[in-house]
Computed example of a mutant assay.
Amino acid sequence: MDPLDDSPDSLVLHATDNGVSWITLNRPAAMNAVTWDQRERVISLLGAASADPAVRAVVITATGKGFCAGADLRGAPATGTASGSERVAGDVARTIRQGAQRLITAVLDCEKPVVAAVNGTAAGLGTHLALACDLVLAAESAKFIEVFVRRGLVPDGGGAYLLPRLVGPQRAKELMFFGDALRASDAERMGLVNRVVADAELAATAKEWAERLAAGPTRALALTKHLVNASLDTDRSTALAAEAWAQEINMTTRDANEGVASFVERRTPKYRGL
């Protein structure tokens, strides 16, 4: 690849292998700080993964020593301000809604399970990108930093939504108030990370997990993801009703019928994602 090539296709590498869509941030010199073009490509790839029956799991990872250093707003399109560089009320909120928040919701709303393979430092939006994924693997050298307070900023990109749901409000405030770097092992202990592995084993472990997911009942996993995510914002009766209807919908799939048949016939099921 041309080292001067800064096209979206070169800055976000993509490949589909064995039912897994691999999305790789590829801007290592900038610790994979996400540009506008990168963000739009990742959002597009996640949408394509939802719609493509051949894709049954997604991995988000990065090259180099950083997973994602946050958002790089340089080169972003104009926000439609009233005049030149003058900022008017609503510009910042609009930029966040159309930018960082869209990226995070694209992960949360992806209909396929998404695995984060955090290869290095995840800071700011990079931390939230990882935590929005369904499963998080981290290399031993990885760190997570709620860097916003260091810049005098409020956490954005869904941070104040995601963190309290993962570690509770007190821990979330500690991370966001101080902005200290959190080692991968401590992130695992707090429940932010599913598993920490040696740096050299990260890619192989991510491949193993993603291929296991890709061999599973894809629609059942999508419905399960939706139920779990929605349960955090709803009451018991609504959650139970949603569960019942999800199972009703799921039982119309071929994979559900295969799962039941394989149990009755005492054999290993062969799921096809349908």
Rank of each mutant, 00 (worst) to 15 (best):
L223D: 07
Q38W: 00
L73N: 10
V115F: 09
A57G: 09
T224Y: 07
T61F: 00
D255H: 05
G19F: 03
A210D: 06
P3F: 02
R195E: 15
Q247G: 15
L129A: 14
H128A: 08
P169S: 14
N194Q: 13
A210I: 08
A203E: 15
L223H: 03
R236P: 05
L162K: 08
A130Y: 11
D2L: 00
S141A: 13
Q170K: 14
E86L: 12
V193Y: 12
A62G: 10
G19W: 05
D180Y: 14
H226W: 11
M31V: 10
L175W: 13
Y161K: 12
G126Q: 05
Q247S: 12
T252R: 14
V197N: 13
A54C: 04
G84C: 05
T95A: 15
A184E: 06
L25F: 15
S21N: 02
T105N: 09
A261C: 02
R56M: 11
P269M: 01
S85F: 02
H128T: 07
T238W: 03
P53F: 00
A246I: 10
R151C: 04
A78F: 00
G84Y: 03
V58A: 05
Q38H: 06
D72E: 14
V92L: 15
L153H: 02
A160H: 05
R212Q: 14
P217N: 02
G64L: 08
E248T: 15
R102V: 05
A117F: 01
L274F: 04
R87N: 09
E146F: 00
V92G: 10
L153T: 12
A132N: 03
F177Q: 10
R266M: 00
A30W: 01
V136H: 05
T252F: 13
L131P: 10
D6S: 05
S231F: 01
P269Y: 08
